[in-house]
Nucleic acid binder design. Sequence first.
DNA 1: CTTAGTTAGGAGTATATACACCTATTGTAT
DNA 2: ATACAATAGGTGTATATACTCCTAACTAAG
Lengths: 157, 157
Amino acid sequence: MGKNTHETKPAIALKDLAECGQCTCFNLRKASRIVTQYFDDSMRSIGLRGTQFTLLANAFAYSPITVTRMSEIMIVDRTTLGRNLLPMEKSGLIKVESGDDRRTRIVKITDVGKRKLTEAYPLWKETQENIKQKMGLENWGSMISNISNLVDCMQES
Amino acid sequence: MGKNTHETKPAIALKDLAECGQCTCFNLRKASRIVTQYFDDSMRSIGLRGTQFTLLANAFAYSPITVTRMSEIMIVDRTTLGRNLLPMEKSGLIKVESGDDRRTRIVKITDVGKRKLTEAYPLWKETQENIKQKMGLENWGSMISNISNLVDCMQES
DNA sequence: CTTAGTTAGGAGTATATACACCTATTGTAT
DNA sequence: ATACAATAGGTGTATATACTCCTAACTAAG
């Protein structure tokens, strides 16, 4: 395995590597991780995660609703939503029943779920305001608007 | 179970529900899902995911590096990174060895990994440019800048 | 040198995510 | 009425994510 006369080309150039630091996917995921942990922390005392708060709020808003319809609204994979609902059903926050169309499964928020949502809302609100305050209202608004725009752009195609 | 004289208070008011649609966590995660799927699609032909491309690019940039140091750079939980490296080690893109400090595990990119990165880079580049183009360069730049700002803000506290 | 504290990492557990494949049910064309 | 297409959902599998608890190894205090 002596040194070849033809140099091995580097995998990618240094400038390309720097570019990869701007990856839309990486940066969005990184921000998601940090913000998810922040919301998770704020609701840990009442046994809810940030994602579950969102699920509960949507269940409340649209209850009763089919799994697939809810997945379309939240822009999440149908099977993902189905699985995410399981721990919430186990803890009694929602219930899932068969609909008249017996293929469908109908998601309904329970009284326990409504109470939990009432309990969670002030925590969510405080956390949300904290983030706005940390970022500055203008920056935050710009970010949310940019993100919404991104989601719209990607949905079109 | 007759109707009570005191009405049951609703879990949260309608205006509060609308507010929840602006949840920083929900919106970031939603965008992450869509963008992750877009990058995953673009690299499926070569058997890489968007997250794995990022991992590979960082392994290349910092190789050799300990797991914990790499997790600090990427701002991801140490145990998460450790687990994410497993499938990449299995497919031979990286190798993980003990360091001189025998507590540490050293991550190194392999030649196979370098070749895969060279293969993946144009796909990544195209996908990244597609998103910029869909959003408009100015909006995209603003978003990335806002997201970086968010990450910085959340790190400080 | 020994002991106590610190650090690096793994294992167990639980949730979040989505793709491929499957079944059951409904709707539709003939 | 039947056959076929379309729809709703579940299961298997795999990765992504992080928290808690654990062990091994290094380091510093005495």
